[in-house]
Design a binder for these strands. Structure first.
Length: 578
RNA sequence: GCGCCCGUAGCUCAGCUGGAUAGAGUACUUGGCUACGAACCAAGGGGUCGGGAGUUCGAAUCUCUCCGGGCGCACCA
């Protein structure tokens, strides 16, 4: 509908005025026709006259009066009125206005989706937590966010691949392996080094290891003798000693990594988050191997003159792209930095042919963005391909107090705990309820409460109420109604506000996709639920005349579809019965 | 010092590429179940959108500047 209005507007300007191409494209670029926020301004509104007035040096009011009379000729438009400083408020014919009810009833699950004129191949990399322990509540936010934008982008016609980058090659994995090894040697809670992982899950992994391989531990007295005082050096020295038995090391490492990955995958599945691909850092290969991906990436950068040797290390000239300083790719001693792996990984992602790479990162990584962007430019690609979305940490509150979390000691509130306490869908909902790059105070008590303050249930309640009405109706009828005849004939108008809201939904989904903002859907659903509850309270649907009841129910089915589709885009299952 | 984010009602927050009288929830004061689910609805008060300047027909929204708060700035991962 908006498109056909825009066509009239465009031809009005191109045909009625001697207008050069440049001015017209300026107007076309700036003006908008949109659904009004409330019905007292009509159904649609456009600001084109105020935009054009400045460019054509005309009076906006006069423009709007003549454009309004032009618009009124359209068969879908009942009336077009010039309003305010030069807006045009458009009243659609009854048929055009109620069209969205039919559309939602016909398209069902795909109502709100769009075809995507510029369909892109998009990769979203998210969560990517180091596989050194269970996911905690901080990871949950990134998981919910990445998954939701994936669903929303797909609904807008894009091709989306979701990926988890597994850092299985670095020092953190060494520490994990050492931690498990120490447990196997019988090191107890008190004795565990400060920098080791000490959570309960470490002991559980050790237990698993014993079950599979028996207890073939290192000699505790040798490993633990004369360790350096500095806690970081201490754990590294322990690792060095344990690694002297490579067979044992590798078997412990392999089992530990598998166990942790298994639990991460399990938690994500419980959270309704599925990654299409798990990409292992180790698959980039080693620098010693000249045919590995990481070697290829490094030599490619060197050949292009982007990387250079200095003080025995290999540096990337990132400051050319406005990074503060150049960064080391390969250390003096020949070991690659984490950055080197990341460069190689991003090269691989681009080589795989994605138009857009969305990286969902924890906010503490924001200093890292410029560096990666520079490396992408250094590789000869447009840095616009990369879109980094930062996710701020979520603070949990219970009884008005912040829930404490200390990661190293292992006493932390895991994602699993959260799902168990408030449920998967409520957790997803509240993670998504605020723009991702802003701090989120996650109130556990609120998420469990059962009043309007808990907007998750407020929205679900609207859906459940419609289901309940339908069930009641079905007690005496064979099937649900399939038209809104009384509403179409304008005999019943009390649903109008709701219909107006139904028609807004596809636009909300598009905006949400364009900005990568799932929370826009949440706030829309909240307002939408409010419109419904208000209608429901004022009107007793099932005691209307049978014609009216049927028409209303057909309309409410469209409303139910909007609620369901909105929730589905967030990865949340609509509730049919509270 | 440099970079990123934030500052909107007492509190928690919405506000889309600039648009018409700045919105919700909560709290406070009231009213509404002999009807489909009261986990609900309705009404009221509450604001110099951190301050200032600029761009514009029009600014909470864009630009600059100042103030206040948070975070990040490794040959760690």
């Amino acid at each position: 509908m908006i498109n056909s209005v825009n066509e009239i507007i465009d031809s009005f300007f191109t045909e009625s005025f001697e207008i050069d191409k440049e001015s017209f494209s300026k107007i076309k670029k700036k003006y908008t026709t949109s659904i009004t926020d409330s019905l007292d301004k009509g159904h649609l509104t456009t600001n084109v006259c105020m935009i054009a007035a400045g460019i054509l040096k005309k009076n906006p009011r006069e423009l709007s009066v003549s454009l309004a009379s032009e618009l009124q000729k359209s068969i879908n438009i009942e009336e077009a009125i010039s309003a305010g400083p030069g807006f045009i408020n458009i009243y659609l014919t009854r048929g055009a206005f109620v069209h969205s009810i039919k559309q939602a009833n016909n398209e069902l699950l795909s109502y709100g989706n769009s075809k995507g004129e510029n369909k892109r191949k998009i990769q979203i990399e998210f969560v990517s937590a180091n596989p050194t322990g269970p996911l905690h509540v901080g990871h949950g936010r990134g998981a919910a966010y990445g998954d939701a934008i994936g669903r929303i982008l797909e609904a807008c016609g894009h091709e989306v691949e979701k990926e988890y980058y597994v850092n299985d090659a670095g020092r953190q994995i060494d520490i994990l392996t050492s931690s498990v090894s120490l447990r196997l040697m019988g090191v107890d809670d008190e004795e565990m080094p400060e920098s080791s992982y000490r959570g309960k899950y470490i002991a559980e992994i050790a237990e698993k290891y014993i079950q599979s391989y028996g207890n073939s531990a290192h000699d505790k007295d040798i490993i633990m003798a004369n360790l350096p005082g500095d806690s970081e050096k201490e754990i590294d020295e322990i690792t060095r000693r344990i690694k002297k038995d490579p067979t044992l090391w590798n078997s412990i490492k392999e089992l530990s990594l598998n166990e942790v990955l298994h639990s991460i995958k399990h938690d994500l599945k419980e959270f309704n988050v599925i990654h299409d691909r798990w990409y292992f850092e180790s698959s980039l290969g080693r620098l010693e191997d000249p045919s590995s991906q990481i070697s290829n990436a490094m030599s490619y950068l060197e050949k292009k003159g982007q990387a250079y040797k200095e003080d025995g290390a290999l540096w990337l000239n990132t400051s050319l792209a406005k990074d503060d300083k150049n960064r080391v790719l390969v250390r003096e001693d020949g070991r690659p930095t984490y950055f080197a792996s990341d460069v190689a990984y991003h090269k691989d992602k681009i080589d795989r042919g994605f138009d857009t790479l969305i990286n969902v990162w924890g906010a503490d990584h924001h200093g890292y963005i410029k560096r990666i962007e520079s490396s992408i430019e250094g590789l000869g690609f447009d840095k616009e391909k990369l879109n980094v979305q930062l996710v701020q940490f979520a603070n949990l509150f219970r009884d008005g107090k912040k829930v404490k979390m200390s990661t190293r000691s292992g006493e932390f509130y895991t994602l699993k705990d959260l799902i168990k306490e408030i449920g998967r869908d409520a957790a997803r909902f509240y993670y998504l309820s605020k723009q991702a790059d802003q701090h989120l105070d996650f109130d556990i008590d609120l998420a469990k409460s059962d009043n309007k303050e808990n907007i998750f249930y407020y929205i679900q309640y609207a859906h459940a109420r419609i289901c309940s009405l339908q069930n009641k109706f079905m007690e005496d009828n064979a099937s649900l109604p399939n038209s809104s005849i009384e509403i179409e004939l304008n005999n019943y108008k009390k649903c109008d506000e709701l219909i107006h809201e139904i028609s807004k939904f596809p636009g909300v989904v598009q905006r949400s996709a364009a900005n990568l903002h799932p929370h826009l859907i949440i706030y829309f659903l909240k307002d939408f639920a409010q419109s419904f509850h208000s209608f429901y309270n004022d009107n007793h649907v099932l005691s209307e005349s049978s014609k009216n009841t049927e028409s209303i129910l057909y309309c409410l089915n469209a409303a139910k579809q909007v609620l369901a589709n909105g929730l589905n885009l967030l990865g949340i299952k609509p509730i049919e019965k509270m």
